[in-house]
Amino acid sequence: MTRSSVLLEKRDAIARIVLNRPAMGNAIDSALAHELRDACRDVVEDDDVTVAVITGAGQSFCQGSAGFSGLTPGVIAERQVACAIADIPKPTIAAMNGDALGQGLELALACDLRVAAEGARLGLTQILEGTMPWDGGTQRLPRAVPRGIALEMILTGKTIDAREALAIGLVTRVAAPGELDATVGELAAKLAASAPIAGRYAKEAIHQGMDLPLSHALRLEADLAVLLHTSSDRSEGIRAFLEKRTPRFKGG
């Protein structure tokens, strides 16, 4: 199957998923959504991949949903894709090379880490078109930033720039013009240098634990930590630390 709307590139342990309809601002239609879900599945199943980066070709990250005549159950079923990203058990990074609007920002919200290029605009703009966010935005934005700010963004549809996004914690890094690839590459390499299982368990502990009462969440953390005692990478990590050298993780 040829992927045209979405490119999937792999180098070392890092997969890059590129939204690739630059002439359309990488707007999401059902074909793109379908290919993006396929790319996510590929990343899940490929044991050699330990980190995934999602970015856009051209000037935009993703301008949102491509035009449709009316929001119907069919449109939602065909185009919802954020859960496929959130379900990747490996650490994921949204590299917002340009605007991330509407459903475009919803994709980024499904990633673990968000980096924006200076000049990018971010917003859940659906209200301006008479609809509302329907790919996780009403749930993930208020979990990522303070509730009052999330409500303002969703109810007014306003967009913010990369600096404001950093100030409210919607992104954790901003890259100067032309430096996004370097910033994200360094970040991805750092994640890829961790023990893969530890990275996955840390991600699981945070995401699942935040949905639990604290006492249950602490048990989940303890259980995952003890389960990690069975991994050879943990023994190697401790040995390397005591011997003051860089660990060589094998993913086991």
């Binding site: 979990r143 992104v171 023990a195 840390a202 502990a205 935040m210 660990p247 993780f249």
Partner: peptide
């Protein structure tokens, strides 16, 4: 980076203090 995860509550306390991002 040492093949472990925080096991003294850190995976739960940190996101509750500074948010998941």
């Amino acid at each position: 980076s040492l093949g472990m995860i925080p096991a003294a509550g850190g995976t739960q306390t940190l996101p509750r203090i500074v948010g998941p991002s």
